[in-house]
């Protein structure tokens, strides 16, 4: 009972601290690259939260009220479920399911459903377009991510995330399967629609799926996006960078360091790169990324042969 409560606290803490870290790192990256002088990158997210909190909520004509209110909550819940799968050390894993990798693979399509629902239920054209556009891309992300994740579970001979971490004791998957991590990170940017892959909430759609929401609903949605990015980084760190494995420092410290490393990488990339046209990225995803994911899988299979 105490252990369950502790695990719950860790996941909730990770949600809060992780999202705050995302906001700080993103603000810092923006300040460095955009050469704007923000007052203080550490306080800025708090000001932003406060301003979102105080803005009155918006509504549209005849939205699907249930779905509209629920979608951000669902998205955040899926991010939290993803964070719960992250193993911190051999002895502390909030949820150690024997099919953890598959559950993570299931969270991605479920997140897609939540994003679609968020855009569709507002009953307005820009959110609808964002949702529509996202789903057409989401299917390709899911496939790529599936293959890459099967790739990491091959050397582990298990679908358990802790077993995947343990299988990297000699060699991290990022070296053993060099294609895996880049592909996984592209999927991560896609599913949390960040930076160059922000197709669902992009500026050319007036913020797409969230263009009709404001105030606390919007805050929750942004919170979910940041949390999803953290969950992706943490799972990526476990599946490719050896999770808790590392010298000197205790396991959880390594998990945090590696997660932060991936987060910084993703956020800087997000600030640096322009948005492609969705049409072009769709072609890229099916013609280049999916075959690369196949290659990764074959590579992993050949490498895992005894």
């Amino acid at each position: 009972m105490v252990e369950t409560l502790f695990a719950l606290l860790v996941v909730l803490g990770m949600l809060a601290v992780g999202s705050y870290a995302v906001a700080v790192i993103d603000g810092a990256a923006g300040a460095v690259l955009g050469r704007t002088a923000h007052s203080n990158v550490f306080l800025l997210p708090i000001y932003q939260c406060a301003s979102f909190w105080l803005v009155p909520a918006n509504t549209t004509e005849a939205p699907d009220a249930w779905a509209w209110r629920l979608a951000p909550v669902l998205y955040l819940t899926f991010a939290a479920m993803g964070l719960a799968l992250v193993p911190w050390s051999p002895s502390f894993i909030p949820v150690d399911l024997t099919t953890g990798i598959v559950l993570w693979g299931a969270l991605e399509p479920l997140a897609t459903v939540a994003i679609f629902l968020h855009g569709w239920s507002a009953n307005s054209h820009f959110p609808l377009l964002g949702a529509y556009r996202y789903v057409s891309l989401g299917l390709s992300y899911i496939l790529v991510s599936m293959f890459v994740l099967i790739g990491v579970s091959l050397p582990a001979e298990s679908l358990q995330i802790s077993a995947v971490v343990e299988s990297q004791r000699e060699l991290w998957n990022v070296i053993r399967q060099p294609l895996g991590l880049p592909l996984f990170l592209i999927v991560g940017l896609g599913i949390s629609f960040w930076g160059p892959l922000n197709f669902a909430d992009s500026s050319d759609l007036a913020e797409g799926t969230s263009s009709e929401s404001s105030g606390r609903a919007k805050l929750l949605w942004q919170f979910g996006r940041a949390a999803m990015l953290v969950a992706f980084s943490a799972i990526g760190a476990s599946a490719f960078l050896g999770g808790w494995l590392g010298p000197v420092l205790p396991g959880p410290a390594w998990v945090i360091l590696k997660t932060l490393f991936i987060l910084v990488l993703l956020l800087v990339l997000g600030r640096l790169l322009p948005r492609l046209s969705p049409d072009r990225f769709l072609t890229l995803a099916w013609v280049l990324l999916l075959p690369l994911a196949f290659v990764d899988l074959v590579w992993a299979g050949v490498e895992a042969l005894p």
């Binding site: 990256a29 923006g30 690259l33 955009g34 050469r35 704007t36 930076g195 160059p196 922000n198 992009s202 500026s203 050319d204 600030r271 640096l272 790169l273 322009p274 948005r275």
Partner: peptide, 16 residues
């Protein structure tokens, strides 16, 4: 044009 294509940081740099 930079802002529209998702390069907010670059857009701000140019404005500055």
């Amino acid at each position: 044009a930079l802002w529209v294509n998702g390069l907010e940081s670059a857009s701000l740099t140019v404005l500055q």
